[in-house]
Amino acid sequence: MTGADAAPGRRMTMIEAINDALDVMLARDPMVVVLGEDVGYFGGVFRATAGLQAKHGRTRVFDTPISECGIIGVAVGMGAYGLRPVPEIQFADYIYPGLDQLVSEAARLRYRSAGEFTAPMTVRSPFGGGIFGGQTHSQSPEALFTHVAGIKTVVPSTPHDAKGLLIAAIEDNDPVIFFEPKRLYNGPFNGHYDEPAVPWSRHPDSHVPEGHYRIDLGTARVVRAGEAVTVLAYGTMVHVAREVAERQGIDAEVIDLRTLVPLDIAAIERSVRKTGRCMVVHEATRTGGFGAELAALVQERCFYALEAPVERVTGFDTPYPHSLEWAYFPGPVRIGEAFDRLIAA
């Protein structure tokens, strides 16, 4: 946390931290604009932009038509003008109509124009499940973006990181997809859906410093140090994996990747070389998921340190269900058994 605890600040939920980051950047840089469905007067369906229009004005924070293609498309044009747009896609599940503008335009504009034009936008989007959102409000499409050359992909797991990462993303001159795990908006979810929810106020990483600070993209964070197993996770699964390690008494080192592209490969190698065992965890579907990339990187770069096959713990290759949400979710049992296999190997 590099002294952040000592800095003046207050406890916040992830929503409040994101709101604070936007507020800081709107005040700090006149080129920042926030746009998206329902983000203006109402302040967003998750309240991430609450109060920002009243404070910064209707031409800085405004609602848009229901057109993801249009939202991303105008953001590309705004970026070409010199603005730093922060479009919100209301749910990651809705991002697909904007995909061409992201993949073919924003991601490649710097390259195709040899730097004449850039797309310095940060696309915020609530993602992930565990909130009974069904198949259209629960998806984790990060691998679609990590596969695209020219886009950075960020997934925070705490209020403290959410603010620092979002500020770094907005200040970045390349397009950034900023996926906000919905299940973490109001509390750190440990995977035990049948236990009472824990609010952020009881979690140390809810201490959010005042004002401007950055967490550089491409830096992972060791959430829990350990010697026996390395866990690579991001978003909601950071908390779930940590909880399983605690309850099973496993000396696991849990690494929150925070940024998927660019990836903090040094942190991964350092840890896996030490533990010799590695688990990758994500909530998204399994086949072709980002976990496959992580597992491949670990075997390429740490093969002779490995004592066991890399374990991949993910959601199932089905649409995200509604009533059977917890059957899909890679919860404590799936993770715990993977720990057991790793340790026994």
Binding site: G276, F303, Y304, A305, L306, E307, A308, A345
Partner: peptide
């Protein structure tokens, strides 16, 4: 044998 054991033997 695991890769780590192989590396050590090597």
């Amino acid at each position: 044998a695991s890769p780590a054991v192989r590396a050590r033997a090597m």
